[in-house]
């Protein structure tokens, strides 16, 4: 790949998906995009870039390139601590704060192949009778339609179900399908999957009491990170919660959130700095669905 072609790709990825590809990642672009070129009947990467220049943002080739360059690493109960916080800190707080509405909305912003929202759904099942009469929605979004298809099917390899998933949960919530494992319909039904580019407007989605935005900001440039965090803040009530990845923070980026005292990895809207969304859930998106 010529330096000019690589520069074009980096610029396109940044503009269309927010993803920042550093200069030394040319090998990554080549290894991931050669199969895309072959699949689209193109001779090589030079022809792929030429074709990209002549296509629109929504063209199948552009979508395929963006999806191929997206990292979709995910596993059940990844990093463990956020899910411990979910059970021990966040859900008790939300059950108390939303006792009148009996409604909680959760958003996984970059769900990849679905392990994160399904981990939350299994955690909710474990809460049991305390959630009787409650409506808890989990919206899971991702840029890539390909990974969303896999997420919706809820079918995972033996390797995937062994990473982070306690064996008791495997037995309880999965059935064996040939050599793979499928998560139970009752868990799949708890999650709604939708395609979403985090560069786009979030307001049609409504407001969320809890947002999991993990291991996605690390791929963005500074301005994009700030933009995403500020727009997330506008979709959350003042008593909402934001969970970021272990290598991510709001510190130095925005005052819209602040770290929660004594709870590493949890951020809360900074009411002194911004005007968050009202606590009543505006469900324009759900009404459309």
């Amino acid at each position: 790949m010529t330096p000019q072609d690589f520069d074009y790709l980096r610029k396109m990825l940044r503009e269309r998906s927010g993803q920042v590809l550093s200069a030394e990642k040319q090998y990554l672009a080549e290894s991931r995009l050669l199969p895309v070129a072959r699949k689209h009947g193109l001779a090589g990467l030079a022809e792929l870039v030429d074709k990209l220049k002549a296509t629109t943002a929504a063209a199948p080739l552009t979508v395929a390139v963006i999806e191929a360059m997206t990292t979709n690493e995910s596993f059940f109960f990844r990093d463990k601590m956020p899910f411990d916080h979910f059970r021990a800190v966040i859900m008790p707080a939300l059950l108390a704060a939303r006792a009148r509405e009996k409604r909680i909305r959760i958003w996984c912003t970059a769900c990849a192949t679905g392990q994160e929202p399904y981990s939350l759904a299994m955690s909710l099942k474990a809460i049991g009778p305390a959630l009787a009469g409650w409506r808890v929605e989990i919206l899971a979004t991702d840029l890539s339609n390909e990974v969303l298809d896999k997420a919706k099917a809820g079918i995972y390899s033996q390797f995937e179900v062994q990473r982070g998933l306690p064996i008791q949960s495997l037995v309880k919530f999965f059935t064996k399908v040939d050599e793979a494992w499928q998560i139970a319909e009752e868990i799949r039904a708890m999650v709604k999957f939708r395609p979403l580019n985090l560069l786009n407007d979030f307001s049609p989605l409504g407001t969320f009491d809890l947002v999991f935005c993990r291991n996605v900001l690390i791929y963005f440039g500074q301005d994009t990170k700030i933009g995403v965090l500020n727009r997330l803040a506008r979709q959350m009530p003042s008593d909402g919660f934001l969970i970021l990845g272990a290598a991510e923070t709001v510190v130095g980026l925005t005052n819209a959130f602040k770290p929660m005292t004594d709870q590493r990895g949890i951020y809360v809207p900074n009411v002194a700095a911004a005007k968050p969304a009202p606590a009543s859930n505006v469900l324009k998106f759900a009404a459309k669905a």
Binding site: Q162, R163, P166
Partner: peptide
């Protein structure tokens, strides 16, 4: 816990942590 063969270091580590 229960590890299904074949396994690798990552899986053993995850299960022992669990």
């Amino acid at each position: 816990e229960y590890i299904m063969k074949p396994f690798d270091k990552e899986i053993v580590e995850a299960k022992f942590q669990e």
